[in-house]
């Protein structure tokens, strides 16, 4: 067991961090999509032509 941890512990840790990061990104993107934020990555409340005003977001 300890041999496995010493040999693959780092790899498992990096994999977990990576998987966590991907999950967090996906969760954030899905949340943004559901809340109506544009997929362009911009913040619509600050956007020149965007219809998604603060009021709509609060709603």
């Amino acid at each position: 067991m300890s041999a496995f941890v010493s040999q693959y512990g780092g790899t498992v840790l990096v994999c977990l961090v990576l998987a966590g990061a991907v999950a967090a990104i996906l969760r954030g993107m899905i949340r943004d999509k559901k809340s109506g934020r544009s997929a362009c990555g911009g913040d619509c409340s600050r956007c020149a032509g965007c219809a998604m005003s603060r009021t709509q977001k609060q709603r």
Binding site: S38, G42, C44, C47, A48, G49, C50, A51
Partner: peptide
């Protein structure tokens, strides 16, 4: 005007066409 806005991002540029 939408074209000017689109130099930042196309999405608000398209919306400005309203």
């Amino acid at each position: 005007i939408p074209m000017l806005v689109a130099t930042g991002c196309g999405v608000p540029g398209l919306m400005a066409s309203r």
